[in-house]
């Protein structure tokens, strides 16, 4: 074997390295630095201080924002995984017509987030074009002012995000399902397993690695969701649907407080890490059970 003596790796990595340093590494470090200042947009002088942290942590809104984020992330992620798995299983049945579901699911996934928010906002509306409320009424139900009640507005953001995100999770689950060796099912058949046993003893354990990857990817994507919520509710009513990402924007660009925005940005990084660690722990714990 010839040695790779003249392969100057540094040069090959140069474009990637330069871009990552300028647009990720430096900004990340600078976000942390800014969070320890009192920088405001349009103000030139700033000093180092921990006052932005104190202001953020003593703000009663923070608890509501964190609660919103938790509810939004947990429910969105759960239903994206659940429906994703369901679609994957339906596709795997190879029954006639199931393939349309795949296209439908990816179609929802590629709709730009802003437009997804606008569309669902129109559908949830109480006006003549509010298809959901009118359908409720048709079946004798009551009209629900989705966007003006805190709980239903949060529910609306979750539904919108599940609609958008399931395509991604479903395709990954389907890919994993296709990768399962059919001989394993045949072996289970010989052992006399029924389909429920086959699902819980063969399918689910083999899907677990992909479910875990999926869980981490979806969770981080959900913590970072911004566009669909902004065009659906703008974080309202009040701050009922303001999650960390929206709060980061509001602090930075509406209140012009770059430093406090940076504190929220740091909280976003922390929450991504916390969510991911908790999930990975939970998954690991199950292994020993």
């Amino acid at each position: 074997m010839k040695k790779e003596g003249n392969f100057k790796l540094v040069y090959w990595f140069l474009p990637l390295a330069v871009i990552l340093v300028f647009f990720y590494l430096y900004p990340l470090a600078d976000a942390i630095r800014l969070s320890f200042t009192n920088t405001r947009i349009g103000k030139l002088d700033s000093v180092y201080t921990v006052r932005s942290y104190i202001r953020v942590f003593s703000d009663p809104d923070l608890l509501i924002v964190l609660r919103n984020t938790l509810v939004f992330v947990v429910f969105t992620v759960f239903f994206q995984l659940f429906f994703g798995l369901l679609v994957g299983l339906l596709l795997e049945t190879q029954l006639r017509g199931m393939g349309i579901l795949k296209v439908a699911m990816i179609t929802a996934w590629v709709v730009p987030g802003v437009i997804a928010g606008i569309t669902w906002n129109i559908m949830f509306s109480s006006s003549a074009w509010g298809v959901i409320n009118n359908t409720f009424e048709l079946f004798g139900g009551n009209r629900v002012p989705f966007m003006t009640r805190p709980a239903t507005a949060l529910l609306a953001t979750i539904i919108t995000n599940v609609w958008r995100g399931t395509g991604f999770s479903g395709i990954l689950q389907y890919g994993a399902l296709r990768g399962i060796d059919p001989q394993l099912y045949e072996a289970a058949d010989i052992d006399g397993a029924n389909s429920r046993q086959k699902f819980f003893r063969v399918t689910l354990p083999l899907l677990k690695p992909m479910l875990m990857i999926n869980l981490v990817l979806i969770t981080i994507a959900t913590v970072n969701t911004y566009d669909a919520i902004w065009s659906l509710t703008q974080g309202g009513p009040g701050i009922a649907t303001t999650v960390l990402s929206l709060q980061t924007y509001k602090s930075t660009f509406l209140r012009m407080n770059l430093a406090q925005g940076a504190v929220y940005a740091v909280l976003m990084i922390v929450s991504s890490i916390v969510f991911t660690t908790i999930y990975l722990r939970l998954m690991k714990g199950q292994d020993h059970a």
Partner: peptide
């Protein structure tokens, strides 16, 4: 490299704005 993929544009956009 993949870690950077996880960092939200929201986070980097604040320092980049600056």
């Amino acid at each position: 490299i993949l870690f950077f993929q996880m960092v939200s544009p929201i986070i980097i956009s604040i320092p980049i704005y600056w």
